[in-house]
Design a binder for these strands. Structure first.
Lengths: 287, 287
DNA sequence: CAGTGGTCTAGACCACTGG
DNA sequence: CAGTGGTCTAGACCACTGC
């Protein structure tokens, strides 16, 4: 009986991507389940730790993504190849990929293959930006005008440190920029990045790059933002912010505080945006 | 060869929930596909109109939901029963249900069955309310205190009419209420409902009902809100709003304009909320 | 224990893409 | 045309629930 119990300990011990399947690869047609880890191994916490096969496959694919085996926008192996590699049926691989696709880590394209998601593909679109012009059509404005004000090295405040899961005082990069739409300054953003992974990032490089900042992070620093969370409040701007956004202290703004995460829920960016909402609105869909 | 082409015309011609399958119910094991509608029927618009079987099943289930065949929080027939009813395999029904579950129209519960989603189940939780206390734990505050200020019959403004897909001047109900958390007024809401489906709604009934308003809509008026869209802006309150929220004209607020939809994307509510964000924030997850 | 949803397989055929 | 993902089926077994 095939066991299909995967080592969950071996973290990134690269190579050895095959299972530890201990028996016949033939067509047993018998069930390939019964994944009862260990039976009675000491007094482990009472987690039965049952994990369906496809979830284990999903983790393995995730590790390959994380390890950089496949680069953003590249195709991953076909379902049949992955099924062979992992010694499971195509259907099981399919279910793993389905979940990864629904989490926007992979993109399926019928007839072509399955690709690693990227922030660069949807041209003109910022995947994480939910600010929409009042007429409802983001493309009618044309691309945003980006203006990098500053990119400097500083030390993490308590707040930034908490957001990035580092220690207060650790080195961080701070970027400030303004986004304008049809000539009107609309978004003032400050963002903080851990210094180590983004070593070499400068205002010049940001200015030179044409495309979403997250796309630059992918190609230049191998940091892929996978999801984010935002906390939104209404605030009034201080004089400096008024100056930069060409507005006045009586105009309320949206304060959008974002933490963006890579694989494994590791925070890699904290960002605070001030959004002018007289010609735009923040759009959210509830399900 | 089984055709499995369903009538897409017959709208709500209740009864006749079975297929128009024209052949053997036996185990043909032959493919049950090839859904080429019509062949060469006149010069129909060049939409191949190919729809996979499970999508057709999904529509049929949706119609049953809409027709009220199964009430909120009730169980729908088991996958096996549905498979028999629709003359398809269990796997096909499963895929249809999977999609409906991911859209929050159904809720699967292993070992128990599949249930019609409701706004009443998650006690204390308002499914569509994304305002979170600063400490991050919505349950720490206890339930919101609801205060219905008003429920009156009026005529739809142009804006409300557009949101509800009715004509300006049509009869609508307008409700105004304040939600308080730990005694602090935090949300001022105005909401507009088409008068006909909500005939009989009064301030008293709203006050008497204990639970989310959307749950009341389900049980008393058979209106199930399925999804919603919000437009968020930052605003300053006028004197009346200040009075009701016990705040001042210098404190910016979140303006949250929501349109809520039932089945078939039919809008059934427009709502405008003013959120105080000094002790709470609007939380949003980006994927 | 029976009934429900959940997982897994194997195999067939379809729709789409690109050479 | 071959290769990829997409749909569909049939059958087996597992995990969970509640009687």
């Amino acid at each position: 009986m095939i066991q299909h119990v995967f080592e969950t300990d071996s973290k990134l011990t690269s190579g050895a991507l095959f299972m530890s399947a201990t028996s016949t690869p033939s067509n047993d047609h018998a069930a390939a389940q019964g994944t009862e880890l260990g039976g009675s191994v000491a007094a482990a916490p009472q987690t039965p730790a049952f994990s369906p096969l496809y979830q284990q496959i999903k983790v393995l694919i995730l590790q390959s993504l994380q390890a950089g085996e496949w680069k953003p926008s590249a195709a991953i192996p076909s379902e049949i190849e992955l099924a062979a590699r992992f010694r499971v049926s195509q259907g099981t691989v399919r279910k793993a990929i389905d979940e990864l696709a629904s989490e926007n880590l992979l993109v399926r394209r019928q007839g072509k293959g399955t690709f690693v998601a990227t922030h660069a593909e949807r041209q003109i679109q910022y995947r994480f930006l939910k600010l929409i012009p009042d007429n409802g059509d983001p493309s009618s404005e044309g691309p945003a005008q980006r203006h990098i004000i500053d990119c400097k090295r500083t030390r993490a405040s308590v707040e930034v440190a908490r957001a990035l899961a580092i220690r207060a005082g650790d080195a961080v990069l701070q970027v400030r920029r303004v986004l304008s739409f049809t000539g009107n300054p609309t978004i003032l953003e400050d963002l903080w990045l851990p210094a180590a992974p983004f070593k070499g990032l400068t205002a010049e490089r940001l200015r030179d790059y044409n495309g979403p900042m997250y796309a630059l992070f992918e190609t230049e620093f191998d940091v892929r933002m996978v999801r984010a969370e935002e906390k939104i409040r209404a605030v009034l701007p201080d004089p400096e912010q008024c100056e930069l956004l060409k507005t006045d202290p009586q105009t309320p703004l949206l304060s959008v505080e974002r933490i963006a995460y890579t694989y494994n829920d590791a925070p890699m960016e904290m960002r605070r945006g001030l959004y002018l909402t007289n010609k735009h609105y923040y759009r959210n869909a509830l399900n």
